[in-house]
Computed example of a mutant assay.
Amino acid sequence: MDGIMHDSDLDGDMNPEANYVPEGDGAGVKLGGVPNARGIGGYPTADGHRIRNGLFFRSAGLNFLGKDGLTDLRRLGIKEVVDLRDPSEIGLWPYRLPDDITVENIALIKQDNSGFDPSAAFNATDGTEARRAVETMSMADMYHDIVARSGREIVGIIKKPLDASECPMLIHCTAGKDRTGITSGVLMSLLGVSDDMVVSCYARSGANLGEAFRKAVMNGLAQDEDGAGQVSAAQTAALASPPELMRGVLAQLREDYGGVEAYCLENGMSLEDIAGLRELFIQ
C-alpha cells in the first residue's frame, strides 16, 4: 500500500533479536517526521496466515509531525488516534489534528505507579534528576504494572478497530515502544502471532527512534560533565527496547491469566469480539 517502506533484509533463523522485517506496513510507514511509525501488517501468524495491512498503526508522539505529516495521516486513512501518554507528557509535547481525526487520550501509566517513569528520564536536565530516575528505574516492573492494572484500557483500545468509524487507527506514546509496544503486542498475540514475532516487532523500536528523537528528548541537557553523563544514561535506558521486556509481558499473560485470550476476556472483551478481530485482521 502507499506509504509502506520496504526492507528486504530478512534474517533466516527468525531470531527476535535479528530485526525480522515483514512484507507489509509492519516494515514501516512514512509519517511526516514521526519516528518509529509502522503498522502490524505482514507479520505471520503461527498457523501460516498473515496480518492484513492498513488497519492498525503505531508510532512515537505525533508532536513530531512535520509539514507532510497530515498528508501522510490522510494517505494512511487514519480516523482515530489514541494517545497513551500521561498529562505531563501531553503538556510538554502537545499537538493538534483536524476535527475529522478523533484524538482520545488513554493514559496507561497509573499516577501511583512505583516503577520507572519514562517521562522523568526523558525530561531530566541535571544529574540529580537523572540519578533519581535511574535509582527508581525498573522497566520490567513498569511493564508488569501496565499489564496488571491497565487491562481494561488496553482491551478497550484493541477493540476499537471493530468499529468502522475508528479504523484505520493509530496509537502512540512518547517513544512508541513501551505503552505502545505492550498494547500492540497484546493485539498481535491475540491474533495468533508467535511470541518470537511479537518480540521481534517490539525489539525494533530502539533502532527505529534514531538520533533526531534522542536529541529532542535530551533538549536542555545540563552541561556539567557528571550531570551530562547521568542524564545520558537515564535517557539511553528509557529509549532501549530489549527483547526480554516483551518476553516478560508474554510470560505474565500466560502465568497470571492463562494466556492472552483469557486476559482479554477478563478485561472486557467477548468471544464475539475476538472472532471479529481475527476475521478483520487475518488474511
Rank of each mutant, 00 (worst) to 15 (best):
R131Q: 14
M139I: 14
A121R: 00
S165Q: 14
D126T: 08
H144W: 04
V147Q: 00
N113M: 12
T180W: 10
V155T: 13
L162G: 13
P161K: 04
I101K: 05
D195T: 14
I157D: 03
M188Q: 05
K160H: 08
Q111M: 11
R152A: 14
A133M: 11
D163Q: 11
D145A: 13
R131N: 07
D178C: 07
C167I: 06
D141W: 00
P168Y: 01
V193K: 01
S114R: 15
I158T: 05
D141G: 10
I171K: 02
V147Y: 05
F122Y: 15
F116N: 02
G181F: 08
E135I: 06
Y202N: 02
S200C: 09
G192S: 02
L170Q: 03
S138W: 03
I101V: 12
G115P: 12
I157P: 01
M197T: 09
P118R: 03
E135C: 05
D195Q: 15
L108K: 09
Q111G: 11
H144R: 14
F122T: 00
S194R: 09
R152T: 15
E135L: 14
S189L: 03
T125A: 05
N105I: 06
S150I: 06
V198I: 12
V186P: 01
V199P: 02
E166T: 14
D195V: 09
V186T: 01
R152N: 13
M188I: 01
G127D: 08
R149N: 15
G115C: 09
F116Q: 04
I182Y: 03
Q111Y: 15
D126R: 08
D100T: 06
C173W: 03
I154T: 07
N113K: 08
H172M: 09
A120K: 13
S189E: 07
M142T: 14
N105T: 09
A121Q: 02
S189D: 13
T183H: 10
D145W: 05
M197I: 10
G127Y: 11
D178V: 09
I106H: 11
S200N: 12
N105L: 09
S119D: 10
D163F: 06
D178L: 07
I157Q: 01
D145Q: 10
I171P: 00
P168A: 07
I157A: 01
G176T: 01
S184M: 02
P168Q: 10
A175G: 09
M197A: 13
T180S: 15
K177I: 01
